[in-house]
Structure formats: C-alpha cells, structure tokens
Write a protein that binds this DNA or RNA. Structure first.
Lengths: 200, 200
DNA sequence: TACAAAAGCAAACCCGGTTCATATTACGTT
DNA sequence: AACGTAATATGAACCGGGTTTGCTTTTGTA
C-alpha cells in the first residue's frame, strides 16, 4: 500500500529533481547553488541532502544503472558473456522501452546538462567503475584474473562510448528514433570489434 | 641559470608535496586537512594553492602523464597504432628508466595513498579521459569516427588496467623488479587481447 | 486520544578553494 | 651600494558543498 507518507516523499523527491534540472539547464551546473535549489523547491538544505547525497546526484540519479555483471551472470547456458551483452544492447537499441516511457524532453535536457559539465561527465564515468569491477569478478569465474579484468575494462569502455554517442546524437538534435537507429548499427560494430580485435 | 628565486620555488614545491604525502600516508587522504598541510609545510594556504590547484593534485602530479596520442602520431611508417603502443609499453616494462630514478619508497607510498582513497582513484581515472579523446582524434585519421572512439576507449581502458595491476603488485609488497617482470607478461597478454579480440 | 517514529527544519559548523589588499623578497639598473 | 619594480607570500574575509545538532511538525498506529 502506498501510504500518504510515501506518496509525499516521492512527490518531494521529484519536485527537487525537477527544479534542479530546470535551473541547471537554464544557467549551467556550476552557476546554480544548492541553496537556490532548496529555496526554489521549498525545502530546507538539510532536507535536500537527505534525498540526494551530493549535488551531482541531482542529475546523475538513474544514469548508468545497468547491471552488466548481472546480465552476464544470468545468461542462458552455452551463451558467451559477450553474446549475452550484445543481445542485451541489441534489444535495448531496437526497443527502447524504458526510454520511451520517460519524458523525452527531460531526458534530453538531462543529457545536455551532463555533457556540458565536466564534473558531471566525470561523475557519470565513475559510475561505470563499480560496474567494471563487478563484471570482472563474474568473468573471473571462467578466465584468469588479468584476462577477466582486461575484458571487463574493454567492455565497459565500449559501452560508455556507445552511451556517449547515443546521447550526443540526442543532444545534437536527433529524434529518439534517429538516435535509436544509429545505436542499432553502433552496437553491432562495437561488439564485432570486441569480439574480433583491432587488427581485423 | 638557476636563480635563487627558481631554486626556492622548486624547494617549496617539493617540501609541500613531501609533507602532504607523509601526512596522507600516516592518516589517510580524507583525514588530512589542507590547513594542516600548509601549516606543517610552513606556507600559507593561499600559497599552497598557488603551487597545487587542488588537494588531489598534491598526490596525482606526475601520474598518468603519458601521451598515448603522441606515441601513435610519432610511430614509424608502416607500424600500426597498436604495434606502436605495444612497443612502447614493452620497452617501459623491460627497462623502467623513469621509475628507477625516483625514490622507490616515495613512489610506493604514493601508489598506496592513491589506491586507498576513492577520490584519488577516481581522479587518476579522469586523467586518462583526456588521453582517450586525444587518442581517438589521432586514430580517426585512418578509421571512421566510431571505430576510432571504440579503439581509443579499449586501449586506454587496457592501459589503465595494466597500471592498476602494476601498482597493486607494488602496494602488495612486491619489489620493483618483481612487479616489472609481471608487467612484461601482462603487456603481451593485454595487447594480444586487443589485437585478436575476446573470443580467441 | 495518545504516542512513537518519521520527516522537516534553522543555525552553526567544517573543509576545499578563491579573492583582495598588503607585505616581503629577489633581481636588474644606475 | 641603493633603488624601483615585478614576482611571490601572506592573513583575513568570503563562497559553496556538505554535516551535525537540537528541536518542531507530521503521520501511522494502538
């Protein structure tokens, strides 16, 4: 049951995030102060920090939450880790369910804000760091440690590159459909490169 | 000619860095305050920040200064980018000239401090970000943009993994020679993987 | 109705980093 | 050797992100 308490909390949380995103989009991440956001969202500063641990998290929440290690761990028997990941991104590219459900403008605004701020880009980068280690741990079950670490590093780096290109298309004005079509091709290229190596 | 002015500057700079590294090693990066460092190094806070732009830079200076893009751009004709980079790291691993010149204990302490602090690890990570883009730009001369970006991402991620393992060996107590021997093998494995891909 | 838990809040505080106006120091010139 | 200038050093005040503390309000429950 969704009690009044929980509804209100969710509501407050969303209000803060929306206000923050709007202000960031208007004036840039660095030029907006936490106090301004709190004031505009009509909460105390300390309350804001109870919902969002850092200024960055106001924008980065929900970004890079994919569980690469989980995808590999849950793959059907007989499928290689790389095939499992390729299948996952293929599916994501051709049928971006999650994306379509969210407000498109908000998503694009979010991407633009992230791209425009080095602090946020770097923060988004960090989020993949944990994924990489988790993925390396899963891959270490069937490879030696160094190979697993290298594979994980290459895979996460490639995924990050794909994300960046997808978002860049959006930021540069492409529609969600156009960006999705690009992504479909890009995924295949990326995984082919991972699979067959750099010298063809 | 090295005037008194320049000598004093260099001296102050080194004193600050040494004091900072010692305090960080003793009590951890986060637990040491900029004011403490300034006080212990007998300079004003504002002076410290004239030498080092951020707290992180007190430890990260000199880390990740390799110029991947430059190595590729300067390679002899007929050599592939990957071969050029492999040759560079092979040479570095078998004959760590730079490393041998520096105080070993200080280097190892530095690595330990970096590894023990998420903020510093993430900062070291960021330093490779610029390298990656520069490398992608160079590679884009002979590949399409996506391929160049993916190659650069995979290469820098692999290099970072190699660095991490090298440093981890040192931090775990291996001698410089032992760590170097490991590195020699690791370099070959890493570049073979890059060259031939993940599925053999 | 009473009450404990959850949520919110204002104010003071800590720390990294910057600004500013003032002092000190090294260097080239006469 | 004395002097003027530019580089460097400094203390103090300030800013913004984030935390701590102690208190009030709100909400679910008995």
């Amino acid at each position: 049951m969704a009690g009044l308490r929980e509804r209100k909390k969710e509501q407050t949380r969303r209000r803060i995030a929306e206000v923050a995103l709007r202000l960031f989009a208007e004036r840039g991440f660095d030029a907006v102060t936490i106090n301004e956001i709190a004031e505009a969202a009509e909460v105390a500063k300390v309350t804001l920090f109870k919902y969002f641990p850092t200024k960055e998290s106001l924008v980065l929440q929900g970004v890079g939450e994919e569980d690469l290690a989980g995808i590999v761990a849950a793959r059907p028997p007989g499928q290689s880790p790389l095939e499992a990941l390729r299948a996952h991104y293929r599916a994501f590219a051709t049928e971006p369910v999650v994306v379509a459900a969210v407000d498109r403008d908000a998503l694009i605004t979010q991407m633009r804000v992230i791209f425009d701020s080095p602090a946020l880009s770097s923060g988004a980068n960090d989020l993949l760091y944990g994924q990489r280690q988790a993925l390396a741990r899963v891959l270490a079950e069937e490879h030696d440690e160094l190979t697993a670490a290298l594979m994980a590093a290459q895979i996460t780096a490639s995924v990050l590159t794909l994300q960046e290109r997808f978002f860049r298309h959006l930021v540069d004005g492409a529609s969600l459909e156009e960006a999705g079509r690009h992504l479909v091709e890009d995924v295949e290229l990326a995984f082919d490169l991972l699979r067959h190596g750099i010298n063809h």
